[in-house]
Simulated assay, not measured.
Amino acid sequence: MENILRPIYQERASHPDTLAVIMIERRNQTSPQTDNFDVALLVIVKTADRPVFIKHYEFNDQKASMQIVTDEQLQQWILLGTNRRIVDWLMNGKILFDRNEYLVNLIDKLHMFPFSERKLKIGLEYGKLIRRYLEGKGFFEARQYLDAYNHIVHALHHLARLEVIDNGFYPETTVWNQVRQIEPQVYKLYHELVDSGEALEKRLELLFLASDFLIHSKAEIGAAHLLSIMEEKDNWYFAELLEHPEIQYYSVDLGILIEFLIEKHLIEVVKVETKGQQIFHRTYSISK
């Protein structure tokens, strides 16, 4: 396989902008990791006209894909977790080319998982967790049990990823195998939700009772990144927070996260007068 693809990746490797080339081969008959292709090539470059460019090839009844990705896009995927297979590719793919030990250093960084990066990722997962959990609770109260189930499964996935990150590891695609070892309590919640013999309504009712305390107890850990940014000044308008280069990653989850943290007395509302009578701007500060 590598010999057949060599002319393709060597052409890329010879370009001065190319930082690394990795090969990922199909492991099973069903292989979402490679989009069911027999092999995937990941080419990392310094800069490009497009952050991601993909080509498909066919040879000897086999299929291959080549994904050309800028370093900036790759770093964003790793930071935000928006392409979850990318860490698996970096950790487990076969290195075909590595300019100036770019990949060696990147993989070392992944193993070290710097605390500042970990703190941000925990905050993002916690924001997603709160949104999914409260949406699930809303559906449950409306007796829409299938929708509630869907949202609470997603909420538990975010809680599982948060636990893995808090323990200094990148969440893998098989995150529940990690959680079983790291935080059995969260794994038990998930197992009882998906594998209990109880009626769905009863399963959800028990899960909300059991997980309420667990999710609320994670508030200080989950909010640590957001609160550290808010220490930069006394009061923040919501738009100011959204414009912050790190807080912007929270996107649509920021509003619901702030309201949750107000309920937990970690953030407080400071009213600012407007020209309208009895109408105030809301600003936010860390609770004293």
Score class of each variant (00 low, 15 high):
Gln248Trp: 11
Ala210His: 08
Asn3Pro: 09
Lys233Cys: 13
Leu226His: 04
Tyr57Ala: 10
Leu266Met: 00
Leu19Glu: 12
Thr283Phe: 12
Ile286Trp: 09
Trp89Gly: 07
Phe213Leu: 07
Phe115Lys: 14
Phe113Met: 11
Phe169Thr: 09
Ala224Tyr: 04
Thr18Leu: 03
Gln62His: 14
Val179Asn: 02
His15Pro: 04
Ala20Cys: 10
Asp61Ser: 12
Lys119Glu: 12
Arg282Ser: 15
Leu261Trp: 01
Lys275Gln: 09
Leu209Cys: 12
Gly123Tyr: 02
Gln185Glu: 14
Ser116Arg: 05
Asp253Val: 04
Tyr102Ala: 00
Ile279Gln: 15
Tyr145Phe: 06
Leu159Pro: 01
Glu117Arg: 10
Val69Ala: 05
Glu231Val: 04
Ala224Phe: 13
Ala239Trp: 06
Leu74Tyr: 01
Ala13Lys: 00
Glu243Asn: 15
Glu183Cys: 07
Ile8Tyr: 14
Thr173His: 00
Leu103Thr: 01
Asn60Lys: 09
Ala160Gln: 02
Gln277His: 13
Leu209Lys: 07
Phe238Cys: 01
Glu243Met: 10
Gly123Arg: 02
Tyr145Gln: 04
Tyr126Asp: 12
Asn60His: 14
Tyr133Met: 09
Ala199Ile: 08
Gln181Phe: 13
Thr70Trp: 03
Tyr9Gly: 02
Leu5Gln: 10
Ala40Val: 15
Leu266Trp: 00
Lys218Cys: 05
Gly127Phe: 08
Glu141Gln: 15
Val269Trp: 01
Leu90Ile: 09
Leu242Pro: 00
Met112Glu: 15
Tyr237Ala: 06
Glu125Ser: 07
Leu41Gly: 10
Ile4Lys: 05
Phe37Val: 14
Leu257Ala: 05
Thr70Pro: 01
Pro184Asp: 07
Arg203Ile: 00
Asp35Ile: 11
Val52Tyr: 12
Met66Cys: 10
Thr173Ala: 06
Tyr126Gly: 02
Asp108Ser: 08
Ser31Tyr: 11
Met91Asn: 04
Met112Asp: 14
Lys275Phe: 11
Leu120Tyr: 07
Glu232Gly: 01
His216Phe: 15
Glu205Lys: 04
Gln10Asp: 12
Asp195Ala: 08
Ile130Cys: 05
Gln73Glu: 06
Glu273Arg: 06
His158Val: 03
Leu241Val: 13
Tyr170Cys: 04
His151Gly: 05
Leu19Gln: 07
Arg85Glu: 14
Ser211Asn: 05
Arg131Lys: 13
Ala64Arg: 10
Val175Lys: 11
Phe115Thr: 05
Gln185Val: 09
Trp176Asn: 03
Phe59Tyr: 12
Asn235Gly: 02
Glu259Cys: 03
Asp88Ser: 12
Pro114Phe: 07
Ile22Lys: 00
His158Ile: 04
Gly136Asn: 03
Gln76Tyr: 10
Lys288Phe: 11
Leu200Trp: 02
Ile229Leu: 11
Ile86Cys: 06
Ile182Glu: 03
Leu106Val: 03
Leu5Trp: 04
Arg132Phe: 10
Phe53Cys: 07
Pro7Cys: 06
Ser251Asp: 13
Glu273Cys: 13
His154Asn: 08
Asp17His: 13
Gln76Ser: 08
Ile267Val: 04
Gly138Leu: 02
His191Asp: 12
Ala224Asp: 05
His191Ala: 13
Arg180His: 13
Ile221Tyr: 14
Asn167His: 08
Ile229Thr: 02
Ile24Thr: 08
Thr82Pro: 09
Glu117Cys: 11
Leu96Arg: 04
Glu201Lys: 08
Ile279Cys: 15
Phe53Met: 14
